[in-house]
Computed example of a mutant assay.
Amino acid sequence: MPFPLPDLPEDLPVVQAGTPGSRTALVLHGGGGPRTVAPVVEHLSATLHAFGPTHPGWDGTPRPDSLTSVARLAAAYLARLLQHGERDVVLVGSSIGGWIALEMAVQATADERYAGLIGAVVDIDGVGAVVAGEPVADFFALDARGLAEAAWHDPERGYVDPAGFTEKQRAIQQANARTMVAVAGTGMSDPTLLGRLGAVNVPTLVVWGESDRIVTPAYGRAVARAVPGARFAEIPAAGHLPHLEAPAATWAAIDPFLARP
């Protein structure tokens, strides 16, 4: 690796479900934290042993000083999977988590130690790429109402009035935002990512909410085209988190993909 690996805390909070010994799924959350992918962990547990870690720096967890990019976080997760003797892991990432999953898949192809470690990738409305004419929304310029309108098909369902937050909730939200800036940058993208996706050599499914205005379906299609053999599935009546807004349609896209030999 071109940089020192951050140390992932051994006591990193992890939600897990499913049968130990079955195929592993690593479920990677986005800026909203682990609660946003909890339904993914629960759903995948029917057929996989699903893990949903809290990224360092989110929800009050410490962030190592060396954890300054998505590339470093991806490298740290790869090293942890290798350390635990995993094989054929399914990476499922939402938003920033989708970026981490794709970065892990790219890095794994460049290092023979990781041969066979990653078996498939599911990118759900992932940020990270720079696509001409399809900019990532300026997340940090959006207030709570603007975020709901950009991220949800039904903004009223996604809107949370910040006036109702406790001081603890407000502090966690502010700390999460600082971690997002430190790891993903204010633009939530890497200008080199799209050009490197041609190295991905595992089955990849790109899932997108048709109403996503954080990153549009056109953006998602460009990401899918950059990954050799990737499939693209658009989820109707859903925004940036289709697994929360339209779970049945999202599972209908993901389950057959993961069921293939």
Rank of each mutant, 00 (worst) to 15 (best):
L241W: 02
T166R: 04
A237I: 00
G33M: 12
A46E: 14
R178D: 14
G97I: 11
A175S: 13
T250D: 02
A238G: 06
H29I: 12
D190R: 07
A71C: 02
A163E: 15
P20Y: 10
E10G: 13
D138Q: 15
D190I: 13
T47Y: 00
H84K: 13
T179H: 11
V89C: 08
T54W: 05
A184P: 02
V223F: 07
F165A: 13
P6A: 10
I96F: 14
D255W: 00
E86D: 09
R213M: 00
E103K: 07
P256V: 11
V92Q: 00
G60M: 12
P13F: 12
Y114L: 05
E149Y: 01
L67P: 07
P39C: 09
G119Q: 10
P20M: 13
R196G: 01
T36K: 07
Y219L: 05
L244M: 14
G158D: 08
H29F: 07
T68C: 09
P9N: 15
E42H: 06
V92W: 04
V202E: 10
A175C: 02
V227D: 04
A175T: 01
V202S: 11
P247N: 11
D125V: 05
G97P: 06
P64W: 04
V122T: 08
A129R: 03
D161I: 08
R260F: 00
V202W: 09
L147M: 15
G126Y: 01
F51A: 02
Y159L: 13
H55L: 14
I100Y: 01
R157F: 06
E86Y: 06
G229P: 02
L67V: 08
A129C: 15
